[in-house]
């Protein structure tokens, strides 16, 4: 397997190639997409992207943790965490390692 890291640059380039906006605007729109998703999640709202997966916010109660270096017990405060659940389609696509064109949409 390769092991390249894709960043905003490649994603906005893909938007540029696909939609025909300027490079600047493509980058702005990518940012807007991530921004809208983040804002919804920060409100505690789940975000469901069909054929990709869903992001949900979960509340965790307080628990006792341990500093792995010193072994000292420290309380871990209640917090909200984000969980991503991939769709069946995404899982399948990744295991096939090929573009599942037939199942698009």
């Amino acid at each position: 397997m390769s092991e390249n890291t894709i960043t905003r640059a490649q994603l906005s380039e893909a938007v540029y190639q696909e939609v025909g906006l300027s490079r600047n605007e493509s980058a702005d729109l990518l940012e807007a997409v991530l921004g809208e998703i983040s804002t919804a999640l920060a409100r505690g709202e789940a975000v469901k992207i069909s054929s990709f997966g869903s992001f949900a916010v979960r509340s965790k109660g307080q628990r006792v943790g341990r500093n792995p270096k010193t072994g000292e017990e420290v309380p871990i405060l209640p917090r909200r965490v984000l969980v991503f659940r991939p769709s069946q389609l995404l899982k399948k696509r990744i295991n096939d390692g090929t573009v599942a064109k037939a199942a698009k949409g």
Partner: peptide
């Protein structure tokens, strides 16, 4: 991801 790449945002 299907290529085994990582996507870092």
């Amino acid at each position: 991801l299907a290529r085994g790449d990582r996507v870092e945002l």
